[in-house]
């Protein structure tokens, strides 16, 4: 860190012990942890998922490069953070989304969500989610049209929407699926939790197989590269709140297991909310941050107009991060509790 080109101050809570991990080691391991989920996405949705992921990564890398050149700094591609943001962003998109829209979101996420704030370490929001939020707001219809998983010809042909020319509205096959959350929201139908956990459902490229995502998260926690408090706090608060609401009546809220395994909750909780830059630093703040995200997710899913709310919940949590760090500072060593603030 001594050779940090921007000369920014490293602010972490004590004890200041170097772990020996550098940014690129961590980033490499995050990619490793994401690989199973990405591979599953390609297997489930075919070439279109691979193209979506590749375009997302390429758009993010290109933006990072251009932004680096404009700001006069050197190339920051080597630390891998842009590639990860691109991969995560790609995993949140519905397969079959026109590739030009994928690129627009990638450019916006990295350009506005990260580069304008000063690059790696400066972004208050998760760049991948900023990109997705922009695409969601700009192209709501393509972003809520879902290609069914395990279509028989998924490795033989691309869905017609994938290669839509830029600035043109996509045309979809007659066969589109609804996500389990949309099914519940609009028709009060629940898919079995095991189908959702294993990924035999429609949804965004990377969010369908919750088990593989959790596996990747467990690997990162085991290597001590990720705060386990955040995902655990999110899962616990979602499970508790949806359990309580489900007890009021099955029409109020679907069962907790379904809530945990459907939609982008696993991907969001494990890989998005834990982004080192935009999440809090101290233990208590991490727990509070996770609870805020979990509660908001349930609130948006149950009472909001949209079927899915993980993205907005995490972005909101990001916005709260500096305040949580301020309010929930750990006690300074050697002082009494009252004087610790």
């Amino acid at each position: 860190m001594s050779h940090a080109p921007t000369g920014t101050l490293e602010i972490r809570t004590s004890p200041h012990v170097l772990s020996g991990y550098s940014v690129d080691t961590i980033m490499f391991n995050v990619v490793l942890a994401l690989l199973p989920a990405s591979a599953f996405a390609v297997w489930a949705f075919g070439w279109t998922a691979l193209l979506t992921l590749a375009t997302a990564v390429a758009a993010c890398l290109a933006t990072e490069r251009v932004a680096g050149r404009l700001s006069g700094g050197g190339s920051t591609l080597a630390d891998g953070s842009a590639a990860i943001a691109g991969l995560l962003y790609g995993l949140t998109l519905p397969p079959g989304l026109p590739l030009w829209m994928v690129a627009v979101g990638g450019v916006f996420g990295l350009g506005v969500g990260k580069a304008l704030f000063g690059g790696l370490g400066m972004n208050p929001f998760n760049p991948a989610l900023v990109g997705r939020a922009f695409v969601q707001a700009a192209f709501p219809v393509p972003m809520t049209t879902w290609v069914p998983a395990f279509a028989p010809e998924r490795f033989a042909a691309l869905p017609p929407s994938t290669l839509t020319p830029p600035f043109t509205a996509p045309v979809y096959d007659a066969v589109t699926g609804a996500t389990p959350l949309a099914l519940w929201k609009f028709e009060r139908v629940t898919v079995s939790a095991s189908d959702a956990a294993m990924g035999f459902i429609a949804g965004s490229t990377g969010e369908t197989c919750a088990v593989l995502i959790l596996l990747g998260g467990a690997y990162l926690v085991a290597r001590n590269m990720m705060s386990w408090r955040i995902p655990v706090a999110i899962f616990a608060s979602v499970a508790l709140l949806s359990g309580a609401l489900h007890a009021l009546g099955p029409d109020v809220c679907p069962p907790p297991l379904f809530m945990l395994f459907s939609g982008g909750l696993a991907l969001g909780a494990v890989f998005m909310a834990t982004d080192m830059v935009s999440s809090p630093m101290t233990g208590r703040a991490c727990v509070a941050y996770g609870v805020v995200i979990g509660v908001l997710t349930v609130v948006i899913r149950v009472w909001g107009g949209l079927p899915e709310g993980v993205m907005y919940a995490i972005l909101f949590g990001n916005a709260l991060t500096p305040h949580l760090d301020r309010w929930l500072q750990p006690r300074v060593y050697g002082t009494r509790a009252e004087a610790g603030s």
Binding site: P98, M101, F134, A137, T164, F167, A169
Partner: peptide, 14 residues
């Protein structure tokens, strides 16, 4: 201004 089938960026109107 554009051909038929232009995809509007809804966010710009919002």
């Amino acid at each position: 201004l554009f051909h038929e089938g232009f995809q509007g960026w809804v966010v710009m109107i919002l």
